[in-house]
Write a protein that binds this DNA or RNA. Structure first.
Length: 870
DNA sequence: TAAAGAAAGTTTTTT
DNA sequence: ACTTTCTTTA
């Protein structure tokens, strides 16, 4: 028999052996937590004789669940098992429970409920807003969705939210109305959104003792991964499930909490010992993944967080190489650099897996192109997942309709795709009458065919053919449908589903009178592609794009084959799966290069990691800039990204970047400044932000120098020798020099002060005044200035490089002289001719950001820099 | 009604 | 830059 303990270190062993009672495992990055969970499950089964079906392990992503399953399976490959332990995500666990027992909740939901993913939910909210007559722009569609979602996650139902809203403001009151309508319609569609999956499960467990009892008895041992990211609903769910046994083991790391924005409550892990009094706590602090250097650099960054208990992570791994840094000109050259480096590494070790981690999905495109050009096979996680592709969603919508024709969102999606002559006007009429009668769109269509009223014959026959298609699919799926919609009464009986908690739909008088054998899932999927005319329409297009779409649909059929044995329940599972797969699930271990967001990378590891786009406003993201807590979350995210690396870590940033199609200059990320510079190797050719940061310790002064250039002193070029001096020596120049190097420190201090951080603790009064002045100057639209400078830079016409006497047509900054406006050219004794990008402050503290060819961007104090117009 | 062309919004992270 | 949505035209 396998010895499940010998491969573990002492702490890991305790974590595995402590099987009874609450257990909190505080596991640092790379400390082998997945290993511990897998061993624990195997140990419970093999050594403690626990039945597999009494074990539940919960993760956040399907990918993590799958990995866990495989690991357990590998450990137990010698055992004869009657079943496998349940390893599931929170959401699929909820679906599993609800598909069994939701009818016991007595909220008139049937077991055949539909799951609305974010996109479906957004469409529904949109419909609600439209019908309520709210202006989508004014209220903000997405903002409304996220407000409602966070209310739901806080456990605020419509009544509570409305009660709060009435006293706040009009906007919130409007959202309350949308919330109310949204909930009504979800219910009328027999649909649950992602939040509902958790909410309804918690309700069910809370309100129905018999169900709670059942699952308490079933799941005698519960394990939760990434516990720091659980929200209050997930906590409630876990508490309810383990109420009786209290055999609950959770694994987490406060430094890797990156989902606060989604309602994750860090207190769940911090207060675990309070929630579960007899908790045994174990710390796993030995890192097996990364080199000492990578750990040191990552640790130095996350140490800046104040909201942190702090723990020490150590490793017996070698020091390894320095972290490598590269400053790119723009996003394209950044991507080229990354591709070139991956190729280089592959010359050494052909199987070296690499990851490129970015903050936002929009950054992925350039990297995709660069990889393709370099001939590197890559795998992209996120962005457009397979199940998010239009054609796939369309076919899934047909399938959803086959199982539940009252799903109005699915119906709206496909009623006219492929085009079958049911246009906007027709749909508006159908929707109007659906509202009047209080029927679903599907029911209304049946009614409208009988009584067309305003509708043209053409529209009616189009509707009739659509109805036939759905009836046919429903028949294949074995869904019982009433021959006709309940005609005539205009009461609000919108849900023909079971009033008494039963799955309702009518008597077993199916369409054709006799029930045909239910088809297997893949056949129904095929029918949804062929019988709907979808395939023919795509085929007749004869474009490459249509070709690709057809291939995707073929892929969908292939995916469905896996569910064939399970019959109609298989189809339902197939559809559930399509709603619940996440981006991270597309990650394939075999891929040479994986492109993904830092968020998606959580839980993964790679020998070679690139963290790209380390720029102010991007990473950390500008949306986090106003809030110190959010900035700390960004920092944790950066920490997560860095600790993915096993052997080689690269950090890069670009000088400029297109945002919304506009080119903007970018500053290096403050996180770069937080890395120990002596552990970083600069791969930039020529001058970079980093080389200036290093040189600062060797610079005495730089103001007023003309002609001769004493600026860069001895030792400045061999920064290798004074790497460590940077921070310490910087202080002595405070408030004296305003050269470009100083401005870097100044820049970061300002940033810290804006965030209300303690970063500016050693600033002088004078500096504070300076900052206040410059803040006023900054108030002007940065984008506007850049647009101006960009346009004049493009135009090399000498008349555009006018001196102070004829400035560009820009508003002069308040109170300042009109000299050196953004867009004009200046001459610097050392750097030569440069373009003014930005100006801040007035009078003596007038500062200019100037870009000099070959030297990059500099921030200069006009008074000292000795600038001339050029 | 559908296709083509114009305008506007979009990008933080995700189950 | 790119995609969705609105407007015009056939």
């Amino acid at each position: 028999m396998t010895d499940f303990l010998s491969a573990l270190n002492p702490e890991q062993r305790i974590a595995v052996e402590h099987t009874e009672g609450p257990l909190l495992i505080l596991a640092g990055a790379g400390s082998g937590k997945t290993r511990v969970i897998a061993h624990r499950i195997a140990y419970l089964i093999a050594e403690k004789g626990v039945a597999p079906w009494n074990i539940l392990a919960v993760t956040f992503t399907n990918k993590a669940a799958q990995e866990m399953r495989q690991r357990v399976q590998r450990l137990l490959r010698d055992q004869e098992l009657s079943s496998a332990p349940l390893v599931s995500t929170f959401h699929s666990l909820c679906v599993r429970i609800l598909r069994q027992d939701i009818e016991k909740l007595n909220e008139k939901y049937s077991r055949t409920f539909t799951i609305y993913d974010q996109d479906d939910s957004l469409r529904l909210i949109k419909n609600c807003m439209k019908d309520l007559g709210f202006d989508e722009k004014h209220l903000g569609l997405r903002a409304t969705q996220s407000t409602i979602s966070s209310a739901k996650n806080r456990g605020e139902d419509v009544e509570e939210f409305t009660a709060h809203a009435e006293h706040v403001d009009e906007r919130r009151a409007s959202i309350a109305l949308v919330y109310e309508t949204y909930e009504e319609r979800l219910h009328a569609n027999n649909a649950l959104d992602f939040d509902d999956l958790l909410i309804k499960t918690v309700h069910l467990l809370r309100q129905v003792p018999e169900v709670r009892e059942k699952y308490n008895n079933k799941f005698r041992y519960i394990l939760v991964d990434e516990y720091q990211d659980t929200n209050s609903l997930q906590f409630a769910l876990i508490s309810l499930l383990t109420e009786k046994q209290q055999n609950i083991a959770v694994v987490g790391d406060e430094d890797q909490s990156i989902y606060k924005w989604r309602g994750a409550d860090i207190n769940n892990i911090l207060d675990f010992e309070i929630h579960f009094p007899k908790t045994r706590t174990i710390r796993l602090e030995q890192n097996y993944r990364s080199t000492q250097t990578i750990l040191d650099v990552a640790g130095a960054v996350v140490k800046r967080n104040i909201e942190r208990k702090g723990k020490s992570l150590w490793t017996s791994n070698p020091r390894g190489d320095l972290v490598r840094y590269f400053q790119a000109l723009d996003a394209e050259s950044e991507a080229r650099f990354v591709a070139a480096k991956i190729l280089e590494h592959r010359d050494e070790d052909y199987n070296l897996r690499a990851a490129v981690l970015y903050r936002t999905n929009s950054q992925s495109r350039v990297f995709e192109e660069a990889m393709r050009r370099a001939g590197l096979p890559y795998n992209i996680v996120g962005g457009f997942s397979f199940y998010e592709r239009m054609e796939v969603r369309d076919v899934i919508a047909y399938l959803k309709l086959a199982l539940n024709p009252n799903d109005s969102i699915a119906l709206q999606r496909v009623i006219n795709s492929p085009p079958r002559g049911i246009g906007k006007q027709t749909m508006e009429e159908v929707e109007r009458r659906a509202n009047d009668y209080g029927l679903s769109l599907w029911e209304t269509i049946s009614l409208v065919i009988e009584q067309p009223e305003k509708l043209s014959m053409r529209a009616v026959s189009a509707l009739r053919s659509f109805r036939r298609i759905i009836l046919r699919l429903a028949e294949l799926a074995g869904t019982d449908l009433p021959e006709r919609a309940p005609v005539g009464n205009n009461t609000q009986d919108t849900s023909f589903r079971g009033q008494e908690g039963g799955p309702a739909p009518a008597a077993p008088s199916s369409v054709s009178g006799q029930r045909s054998a239910v088809a297997i899932p893949s056949d129904i999927v095929k029918a949804a592609i062929f019988d709907t005319g979808y395939e023919n329409t795509l085929k007749s297009e004869k474009t490459d794009e249509a070709e690709a779409r057809l291939e995707n649909l073929q892929e969908l059929v292939n995916a469905a084959v896996d569910y064939d044995e399970q019959g109609i329940e298989g189809l339902r599972e197939f559809i559930d799966h399509s709603a619940l797969v996440s981006d991270a699930d597309q990650y394939k271990e075999e891929a040479v290069v994986t492109l993904m967001t830092a968020h998606s990378a959580k839980g993964l590891e790679f020998p070679l990691v690139f963290i790209v786009g380390l720029e102010d406003g991007l990473f950390p993201h500008s949306r986090s800039a106003t809030d110190a807590a959010e900035l700390e979350e960004e920092r944790r995210l950066c920490y997560v990204a860095m600790t993915r690396a096993e052997r080689f870590l690269y950090v890069t940033h670009a000088m400029k970047r297109r945002v919304y199609g506009e080119e903007l200059a970018s500053e290096p990320s403050q996180f770069l400044n937080e890395m120990p510079l002596d552990l970083i190797e600069d791969l930039t050719r020529g001058n970079s932000w980093l080389s200036f940061a290093r040189r600062s310790s060797a610079i005495d002064y730089e103001h007023g120098n003309r002609g001769s250039s004493p600026t860069v002193r001895e030792g400045a070029s061999d920064y290798a020798s004074d790497r460590s001096g940077y921070r310490k020596e910087r202080k002595k120049f405070e408030g004296k020099t305003y050269d470009s190097v100083h401005s870097i420190a100044e820049f970061f201090k300002q940033r810290a002060a804006q965030l209300g951080n303690t970063g500016g603790s050693f600033q002088s009064t004078r500096e504070r005044e300076e900052r206040n002045k410059s803040a006023r100057g900054q108030a002007r639209s940065q984008a506007d200035q850049l647009r101006r400078s960009a346009s004049s830079a493009r135009n090399d016409n000498p008349s555009d490089s006018r001196g102070p006497s004829s400035p560009l047509p820009v508003t002069p900054s308040p109170g300042g002289s009109a000299d050196f406006v953004p867009g004009s050219y200046v001459k610097h004794a050392q750097y030569g001719r440069g373009l003014v990008l930005r100006r801040e402050g007035v009078g003596d503290s007038l500062k200019l950001t100037v870009t000099f060819p070959g030297y990059g961007q500099k921030k200069l104090i006009q008074k000292y820099a000795g600038l001339e117009k050029a």
